[in-house]
Amino acid sequence: MEIVIYGITNSVTLALMAIGFSLTFGISGVPNFAHGAFYLLGGILTWIFINQLGIPYLFSAILSVIIVGLLGFGLYWGLLLRLRGLVVNEVIATLAAAIVIIEVLRYMGFSGFTYVLPEFIKGSVNIGKAWLDYQRIFLVGIGVALIIILYFFTHRTRVGLSFRAIAQNERTAISLGIDSDWTAALSLAFGSALAVVAGLAILPLGSIDTEVGYDILIYALAVGIVGGLESVPGIVLASFILGFCQILVATFFKAQWLTVVTLGAIVLILAVKPSGIFGKYKELEERV
């Protein structure tokens, strides 16, 4: 029973970490390596708003989601657009942006026990033998809600549909009057905002450490690689596989084996189906 509960929370956490990254990648093909940096930045901005500017929690949270979303948008308009077309440069540029953000934050000393975000809902319950705080339940709620909203967004709304159109065939989409740059910038904004939402749900469980900027990126990539980068079902499935494996291993062996699971899963999936469980990266046959 505990395994199920911890497994679910862990899996949803992983999914939350990965969803923003894969949304952006799926739509615009830009691998936003600044994902983890935005996650971290969102958390720290919220902390600053609450503790130094005295803004109420909810407002601070919304404010930092918006700010980082704008930053993501700016990253595209300001930087990637100049490099658009050269994938190499996009990759390098987002990684460079990530490093700048994370290292500056590290230099400014945003690490350690003072930097704790309050929980949205305090307290905890016991379910069977599992001890579950409300924040984790809240997190699962957010995760599930986000996935459902995303699904409806991409399948029902105008912007969402144009996202999917771009993802499927950029040229045709352009010829249908969808502005691909605008959409790509929006996708980056959404992805970044999602990173912050994930951060706000997850970070209150511990203290903020700049190292998470890199860790989140690793997990987002790991989940994406296992599940198939551009597929939401793939992300969800991979999160659950990885999440449950981690919990199982942690309960029956040692907590240290967590990374082994992740690495093992990646190596295994690379050997068996390099595009990930649901990925179509290889299967997509290019027209010649």
Partner: peptide, 16 residues
């Protein structure tokens, strides 16, 4: 795999 997949894998392997 084509595209940026290679970059992603090489990025996370050393960190892992």
């Amino acid at each position: 795999l084509r595209g940026v997949y290679f970059s992603m894998v090489t990025l996370i392997l050393p960190l892992l």
